[in-house]
Design a protein around this nucleic acid. Structure first.
Length: 579
RNA sequence: GCCCCUGUAGCUCAGCUGGAUAGAGCGGCUGCCUUCUAAGCAGCGGGCCGCAGGUUCGAGUCCUGCCGGGGGCGCCA
């Protein structure tokens, strides 16, 4: 019962049940001056009962106990009921939030096993801007799921298998293992890939070797596997560096590449066949699913096995569903994959449902996201049409942050400044990605991200830093700050607004997780940071007029720094102590 | 041609299962640093929510049709 909404709903629901069992009070935050919430359900109920809205609203306003929690209840002629919470209710909600180990987020009634598929870079290929979204969003969702009390299995579906590896291995042989390993380990993955591609296209002899090499790889030839392992290992080491730089929680243990599923493909296809789902079409093994058609309106096939006998990516993706819901016994599987793959994934999910692997369709979720665009609103590419290396974007963000830090935080030690530049630069990039609705495309604009104004990562970091500086000045530690005996008083509107905002954490968190939308958590934190900064400007803490006010305001600051810190942690953004 | 996503202030974006006078930030203008960090705060100006119908007591939100942007549409992943 930590949230004001829950308290109000529990009082209002009996009245609405009296009007019509199960009727929704439609309780919403109010934007009207002097009110916190509004009840809109009376209008709808009056309509159904053919009664006057104002009359029903008046009945609602007289709900048992409502007067005790509200300092003001207003009924409008249209039938709206406006509510202003009593200070004592806000204070008790705040106290509950503060004392709660997860600020009001209760453990789930049933902990779910959630498999989260994200990041998925390709071996011997550079990570580019597109990988930023899946990696950052996936990492945030994992953190949120863990925080909510669910059982999370991260799976990094690295592209480490397929026909292109014949070419890559042959190029490795041509360049020499040591030289190739060096090239890959320093992160010139694109250079390696381009050279391999160029050599492949220029030489029929290389093409023939590559074809033989693919066969050797698939038949498990030890020497070929050894060479393949070099490519994979060097690439994974490089990815680890990027993840370290980015501050995401992916490790080697989370790598479950395409090669992992390779041994399952025969079984997967056999099962589809046994269930009568496979159809031969021009030599290819296909599954046709209802609702999917081609441009001519004919059924669209999911090609599981190509006419040459090889498996396509549909087979691998089906295998992931088979494995995750079968062997891993997942309750939910998230696929944090770009929007262009909606059709493909949708078909795979439908097939898995038909095959009986998926208990129900909603268990498999495509957490789709839009593309990263350049300043020209086109796909984010260089003038030459190449994609930007993710590491270069991150380095540039840190460079810009470093410039700002050196001019504004001169009093900090050099190593702290360097760490700060990293925290700010990387945080800015991640926050920019997380703070907009993932369904939309977004423009990658470093100037805006690092501008430190408005809805940005640095703004949140700064708000928390200012909060912490109060404790530092007061010679206190917010971590072992104890709740004041005299309680919390909310004499100033800014204090009241801050207390109310703080008790909204759990609700905002839940709505973000329900829709797999980190940006809702961002919006909440930005609002909280803004409410706090207003409080900071208008309510002196250390030099408060009296001791009661001082300890009360310190309590507000303690909860604020904790919630902002927890929020940034959930987003995967560092929270510096000083800026 | 069909399907998916998208269209809100000059720019970048919010708008929570339909609620009152649509909100922020940037940019523009005006104030505020002998007082806890001005990477900030307070205020002003800025809108036919792509267009047209429909459902509803009520539509930025739901439905239909157009228009504009992005993407996808059988053996690449």
């Amino acid at each position: 019962m930590a949230a004001p909404e829950q308290i109000l709903t529990s009082l209002l629901q009996p009245v609405f049940d009296g009007l019509a069992p199960g009727a929704d009070p439609i309780l919403r935050p109010s934007s009207r001056e002097g009110f916190d919430f509004q009840v809109n359900g009376a209008i709808a109920a009056a309509k159904r009962l053919r009664r006057s809205p104002a009359e029903v609203a008046a009945e609602v306003a007289h709900a048992e106990g409502l007067e005790d929690v509200c300092s003001k209840v207003e009924v409008t002629p249209q039938g709206f009921v406006n509510l202003r919470l009593g200070h004592h209710v806000i204070v008790s909600c705040l106290a509950e939030t503060a004392r709660h180990p997860r600020f009001g987020v209760d453990p789930p009634t049933e902990a779910l096993k959630v498999v989260v598929d994200y990041s998925a870079p390709n071996v011997a290929k550079e990570m580019h801007a597109g990988h930023l979204r899946t990696t950052v969003i996936g990492d945030c969702l994992c953190r949120m799921l863990v925080f909510a009390g669910h059982n999370v299995k991260r799976e990094n579906h690295v592209g480490d298998w397929g026909t292109q590896f014949g070419m890559l291995i042959e190029h490795l042989v041509d360049v020499g293992e040591t030289a190739a390993a060096h090239e890959l380990s320093v992160g010139d993955l694109d250079g390696f890939y381009r050279q391999a591609r160029a050599a492949f296209e220029a030489s029929p002899e290389m093409q023939e070797r590559s074809r033989r090499r693919v066969v050797a790889l698939q038949s498990g030839d030890p020497e070929t596997l050894r060479l393949w392992t070099i490519l994979v290992e060097e690439s994974l080491s490089y990815f680890d560096e990027v993840y370290e730089k980015l501050g995401v929680q992916l490790t080697r243990q989370d790598v479950v590449g395409e090669s992992f599923y390779n041994p399952m493909l025969d079984e997967v296809v056999a099962q589809l066949d046994a269930k009568g789902l496979l159809v031969d079409s021009n030599g290819a093994k296909c599954v046709f699913v209802e609702g999917w058609t081609t441009r001519e309106g004919t059924p669209l096939p999911l090609i599981v096995r190509k006419s040459d006998g090889g498996y396509g990516y549909a087979a691998t993706d089906l295998a992931t569903l088979w494995d995750r819901f079968g062997r891993l016994k997942a309750d939910v599987a998230l696929y944090v994959v770009g929007a262009p793959q909606a059709q493909h994934l949708g078909m795979c999910f439908d097939v898995a449902l038909k095959a009986g692997w998926l208990p129900s369709r909603e268990r498999a979720v495509h957490v789709s996201f839009g593309s990263v665009l350049g300043p020209d609103r086109k796909m984010f590419k260089t003038r030459a049409g190449k994609t930007f290396r993710l590491v270069d974007l991150l380095d540039e963000a840190v460079d810009r942050a470093r410039v700002a830090v050196s001019s504004r935080s001169e009093d900090l030690e050099a190593d702290e400044r360097e760490g700060l530049a990293r925290a700010i630069g990387i945080g800015a990039v991640k926050y920019a990605d997380l703070s907009t609705d993932r369904a939309r495309d977004y423009v990658f604009d470093l100037d805006r991200m690092i501008s430190f104004d408005g809805n940005t990562g640095p703004y949140l970091q700064y708000a928390r830093v200012r909060c912490l500086s109060i404790f530092r000045r007061a010679g206190l530690d917010p971590a072992d700050f104890s709740w004041p005996d005299a309680g919390v008083t909310l004499g100033d509107p800014a204090e009241r607004a801050l207390a109310l905002a703080l008790s909204g954490f759990a609700g905002a968190f839940a709505s973000a997780l329900d829709t797999w939308s980190p940006h809702k958590l961002c919006a909440y934190l930005y609002d909280l940071a803004g409410v706090f900064t207003s409080f900071f400007e208008s309510c002196p803490v250390i030099k408060a007029p009296d001791e009661t006010t001082r300890s009360s305001r310190l309590a507000l600051c303690a909860v604020t720094s904790a919630v902002l810190g927890q929020g940034l942690e959930l987003l995967g953004i560092q929270a510096p102590e000083r800026m």
